[in-house]
Every structure is written in structure tokens, then in C-alpha cells.
């Protein structure tokens, strides 16, 4: 049986039974998105590799926990990566070393290789980026600081010198608006 022909949802039970080839097929499909998210969050190649490794080994050892009612396998994997990246950010104080979106020349040299997105991913990414771009800047900022920066709403409120309630409200309103925009572009989860 060529496991690469199986759907994610069929691979997970095989992986949970200890079949390394099923895990490998999952890795091949989702490691790009996982590593891209990790790098976007931690901004350092070695830390992104550690986060991706931790997340996939976690996946391998806990595959039996996948619950398809909670979303796709990809959503589940990226959720694990997100948690691990937040742990890494909070653990290693990468926050203090990171430079917002402005990388130094040295960091650019060490950055991972950018890849051309395939058509499906390019379309999907365009829909998501569009849904983010139409948000008011103050809503987009708190969403990005929270999701990609790993900051709590309390930390963001301090950073922006805004009331906590305002920050939470912006997160909620921004995500609601994004959800509505995405509904027109039909990005699956």
C-alpha cells in the first residue's frame, strides 16, 4: 500500500499505531506550512527548526488525540506548531531579541529559503492576506501581535498604552470581520 495516496484522516490512525511511513507522508504534506508558521513567529532559523521538530514529534507521539470534529489535520498540526512557538518565544525571551519585521542583513543571509507557492496555496494565501489587509490597522495590529508575536492581550495593552478591554474588543471585531471576508473566499479549515 502506498500511504502517500491516503487522505490525512486515513493516515492519522496508521501513524497512531506506530507506522513511520504514514507519519512521513503527513510530514511531507504539512512541514512546509508548519515551518513557515514557526519561522514567521520566532524569526530565527534554528528556533524555527526546533519548534517544527518538537511539534512533529509531539504529533507522532500523540496522533491518537486527533479529533476530526475540531478541524482538518492541517489546522491541528498548525495549532500544535503555534503552541510550541509561543512556548519558545516565552521560554527563550526571543521577544527581546527580535526586531519586529525589520531583519538585519545578517539575519537575511541566514534566513531559510523562500519557495514558490503552488497554485492552490498561492490562491489560499491571497484570500487570507486580503482578508487581513481589509481590516482597520488597529485591529490587524493586535491580531498579529497576539497570534504571530505570542503576546497576551495584557502585554499588548501595555505596549500600545490602550485599555485591556479595547485590545480584546479589537481582536474580536477584527476576527469577526476576517471571518466574513473569508466566507466569500471560502478558505477551508
Amino acid at each position: 500500500m502506498d500511504v502517500r495516496a491516503l487522505a490525512d484522516e486515513e493516515l492519522i490512525p496508521l501513524m497512531a499505531r506506530g507506522e513511520a511511513r504514514a507519519f512521513e507522508a503527513i510530514y511531507e504534506r504539512h512541514s512546509g506550512a508548519a515551518y513557515s508558521l514557526a519561522y514567521r513567529m520566532v524569526g530565527a532559523r534554528s528556533v524555527a527548526e526546533d519548534v517544527t521538530q518538537e511539534a512533529f514529534l509531539n504529533l507522532w507521539r500523540s496522533g491518537a488525540h486527533y479529533d476530526r470534529a475540531r478541524g482538518s489535520v492541517r489546522t491541528w498540526i498548525l495549532g500544535i506548531v503555534h503552541h510550541r512557538a509561543i512556548d519558545a518565544l516565552r521560554r527563550a525571551s526571543v521577544h527581546s531579541k527580535r526586531r519586529s519585521d525589520d531583519e538585519t542583513a545578517a539575519e537575511r543571509l541566514e534566513a531559510p529559503e523562500r519557495v514558490e507557492e503552488d497554485v492552490a496555496r498561492r490562491d489560499e494565501a491571497a484570500i487570507v492576506r486580503n482578508a487581513m489587509e481589509v481590516l482597520p490597522p488597529d485591529q490587524l495590529k493586535v491580531i498579529e501581535l497576539a497570534y504571530f508575536g505570542g503576546f497576551t492581550h495584557v502585554e499588548i495593552a501595555e505596549m500600545l498604552e490602550s485599555p485591556v478591554g479595547t485590545v480584546k474588543g479589537r481582536m474580536r471585531l477584527g476576527l469577526k470581520k476576517m471571518r466574513e471576508t473569508l466566507a466569500h473566499g471560502a478558505v477551508g479549515t
Binding site: A20, E24, Y27, S31, G32, A33, A34, Y35, S36, L37, Y39, R40, A48, E49, T52, Q53, F56, L57, G71, T75, L78, G79, V81, H82, A111, P112, E113, R114, V115, E116, E117, R121, E124, A125, V128, R129, A131, M132, I143, Y147, F148, R172, L175, K176, M178, R179, L182, V187, T189
Partner: peptide
Amino acid sequence: EELSVAASALPMSAPAMKPPPALKARIM
């Protein structure tokens, strides 16, 4: 549930990066 749809789409906005082959070798 509603807002999770938006939050779970956020990773797709990250620029696509290629994981190094050595990473796969270590994990496998």
C-alpha cells in the same frame, strides 16, 4: 467556533519557507 475559522487561517498568510532537508532527517 466562528472566530476560530479566522484564527486558523492566519498561518496561511506567512511567507512560504522551505524546511531544510536535515530537519526531516533528524525527525525521521
